Simulated scan of single mutants.
Amino acid sequence: MAQKTPILLLKTKSTPSDAYDEYFTNKNYNPLFIPVLSHQFHTQNLAHIRDLFNAGALKHDNPERKYGGLIFTSQRAVEGFARMVEEDVDGQIASDSLKSLPLYTVGPATSRSLSSLVTSRLPHATIHGADTGNGENLAHFILEHYNSLIGNKNGKGEKLPLLFLVGEQRRDIIPKILMSEGLEGEAIGVKEVVVYETCVMESFEGDFTKIIDSYRFEDSDGEGEKVMWVVIFSPTGCDAMLRVLGLGSSKDNGDGVLVAPGKRVFVATIGPTTRDHLHLKYEFAPHVCAEKPSQEGIGGGIERFMEGRNGK
């Protein structure tokens, strides 16, 4: 029986189940997880968000309302927001007066995280943008959707800005598009609030090295070339990954990273942000960039790549 292709997922494995683990196991891969990121929540900023809710700053029927909705582009931001909501013992955040509060999100994973929170604690909120796939698409979606809403103004007839819950490392593409001067009356104000910080886990490079070395020196099964895939979910940690693969000075020729005779490593990214980071900062072009940020997007891209490579 042919050995399963190892696929190294540079993320923390979700519990109690992980969609990537289930998907790639069923597709005859051997998924392996290496956590890359360590997150620290900004309790003071999250407390500020809680105070805004409790003061009625997002209440639909409050003429002094300050914000018309929230934007999320990462699961960590959703996690921080969820902690804040779950600490709302008085239930003020889940008040009926929050009806139709729009929550904008990008990608199915972030949407799923929000959905469970909305179902349990925010029954009057609505989720939008889950299929947009990246920040630029989400921004254009928000322009069309938010500007069409009747309740997007305060008592003075002024369009309400949106709260954008972010990490300290983020692109500014969404605020730039929404607040572009050329939009005039269609522009939407954005207030960014940093709710978490991200850094590389100290153990990441060592853990990554151990797996690559194990792959490099393991016995061959005699069935020709062996392939391993590495999937990157964030620009953070890319320098360590490339260093371990020996790409600090030599560039991949597009046919995989040859780590040992007959053993190649290919790289896939969850989306264009990480792909562009690799290209611009390290002059490295990943072999696959998912068309949609999901396990199906990664899996489909890998499948098409390998079919094209084997058809050479």
Rank of each mutant, 00 (worst) to 15 (best):
G224Y: 06
P31G: 01
V78E: 06
L114R: 08
V244Y: 04
I177G: 03
E79K: 15
S116A: 13
F233I: 02
Q40V: 14
E307K: 15
N137F: 03
S120Q: 11
E158D: 10
S250E: 07
E205I: 05
Q75E: 11
G299K: 06
K159D: 03
W229T: 12
T43L: 13
N28S: 11
M1V: 15
E144Q: 10
Y29I: 08
G237E: 12
A240K: 10
P35N: 04
G80P: 05
M201K: 15
R65D: 00
D239W: 05
L163R: 03
P108K: 15
S38L: 04
T15M: 04
K153W: 01
V106R: 10
P102E: 00
S294C: 14
L9N: 02
H42I: 05
E158S: 07
K13G: 00
F41G: 02
Q295G: 09
D213F: 07
F233E: 02
R112H: 12
R243L: 08
K156H: 03
A139Q: 10
L165S: 12
S249K: 08
A130I: 01
I211P: 11
G222F: 12
G167V: 03
G155I: 05
K263Q: 13
R275P: 01
Q92L: 09
Y282H: 15
T25Y: 06
N253L: 15
G135H: 10
D18T: 07
V195N: 12
R50T: 03
H140Q: 03
E168A: 14
Y20L: 06
E186T: 12
V265A: 14
D18C: 13
Q3V: 15
L183G: 10
S111P: 08
E291F: 15
L98C: 14
C289P: 04
D21T: 03
S115H: 02
S214F: 04
D213G: 07
A77C: 04
H124M: 13
I302F: 07
L258G: 10
G301C: 02
G262M: 05
I93D: 02
G206H: 09
S116V: 07
F72S: 01
R170N: 04
P123F: 12
Q92A: 11
L70Q: 02
P161D: 01
I298C: 13
K312M: 06
Y29D: 06
M1P: 12
E202C: 07
A125D: 00
N154L: 13
G271N: 04
D276N: 12
E223V: 02
H39R: 06
E79N: 14
I232N: 02
L247I: 04
R171D: 11
F164S: 05
K27S: 09
L280S: 10
A2H: 11
F204T: 04
G246D: 13
K176Y: 12
S113H: 01
V230Y: 08
T12G: 10
I298E: 08
